[in-house]
Design a protein around this nucleic acid. Sequence first.
RNA 1: UCCCCGGUAGCUCAACGGUAGAGCAUUCGGCUGUUAACCGAAGGGUUGCUAGUUCGAAUCUAGCCCGGGGAGCCA
Length: 441
Amino acid sequence: MTQDKQPATTIITIEDAGKHVGSTVTIRGWLYNQRESGKLLFPIFRDGTGVIQGVVSLKEHAEAFNALKGLPQESSVIVTGTIRAEARATGGFEMHVSNVEVVQRVSDSEPYPIQLKEHGVDFLLDRRHLWIRTPRQAAILRIRAEAELSARIYMDSQGYTLTDAPIFTPAACEGTSTLFEVNYIDDQKAYLTQSGQLYVEATAAALGKVYTFGPTFRAEKSKTRRHLTEFWMLEPEASFAHLEDMVQLGEGLVSAVVQSVVKNRTRELETIQRDISKLEKIVPPFPRVSYDDAIKVLQKAGNPAKWGDDFGGDEETILSKEFEKPVIIHRYPAAMKAFYMATDEQRPDLSLSFDMIAPEGYGEIIGGGERLANYDTLVKRLREHNLPEEAFQWYLDLRRYGSVPHAGFGLGLERTVAWICGTEHIREVIPFPRMLYRVYP
RNA sequence: UCCCCGGUAGCUCAACGGUAGAGCAUUCGGCUGUUAACCGAAGGGUUGCUAGUUCGAAUCUAGCCCGGGGAGCCA
């Protein structure tokens, strides 16, 4: 390793440029774009924290001018100059460049493929490793990071302990979704987890209030803007908790995440031109609608839904359009929910379940509810769902040894962040999306 | 798995039965305040693949491949 050359001036990040007006400073980054006007150049630099326009004249700084003239896009540079407030520059500041060190010059014969104009989705996804350099994508990834951080801070503040769930699992957690099968050691088969839920039920019985936060895999052949084959899920579980406890935790969590992004990532929200006023309204309580009532709302809106139907994208969109906040739909028919869901004592045809539907048509971001605590009922359900009982013996142990009422939910990180960012597609909110028919790069 | 839509220059698209084009990008030239700068010039194509219809196919037909959106399923 060779030591970087130490410039004589202070090294700053572009996001802090405004604090250095009048000073001569150094920025380390990349040439994002450049315009020419005779003996003036207007390079735009980016460093990951933002972009800033530079200006350099041949007359004043011939060496810097010649270093930048014709320099291909995305060449890496260390530039030194004076920061000035400048209304004509986007961002309000610009750097009068006096010195340029080219770290790596991009080849003229292989120019940087991503231009500042529009590209097709396929083209961009094939170059996702470069696409994330654009200001919009970088801002989205910072918002995702804020969402993850604030979610963990909130969960811990509520007394929940993070207990990581395994990625390799012996069998289906729910039996409904398609699993990725992998070869384990010595001809054994294992499956990539499709939910940490069963494991978090075990850790809840050990630690009380817990959650898991990690990747989840679904081999569903879903080709929509709301689906990934690999996505991140936060799953709380609490012993002695009931449906209403989880509804309150869910709205508290979602509100905390949204408000943290609004507060700490304002600049990024502006970069992606998100309407912040819509996010500021996301505070508890969220509207609650029973499944029974949701059917009535749908029928009123002219939707052909009838009792017993599950909600698809259209139905979710109709329901979410009724409110400015996420809406909680609770007590779905038991028949459409997973085998481990508890039922309502008053109405055995209903499950003690809830979904949270994001506003603006972003779909279900939370699904959860109260779990079946009774051993005999659970065994009966396993058989009804044709699930391999051997693989679930450890899970049944949780009902053999001190079973208690407990509840939890799963929050889909990408759908939540896609809604917060207002992105067209969920693939933009994860650094390297894994989708049906796409595992590159 | 099913249903729709698409595949033409590096990129975004036009041409819809009669010699394959534009803008951007690239290269060269011009310009001292540009905002996806602008002006001028040049290079750049086996129209996804394979058959077929036709005097003639980017264009019509069939099959296949690849991608996008949606349904089902789900976060």
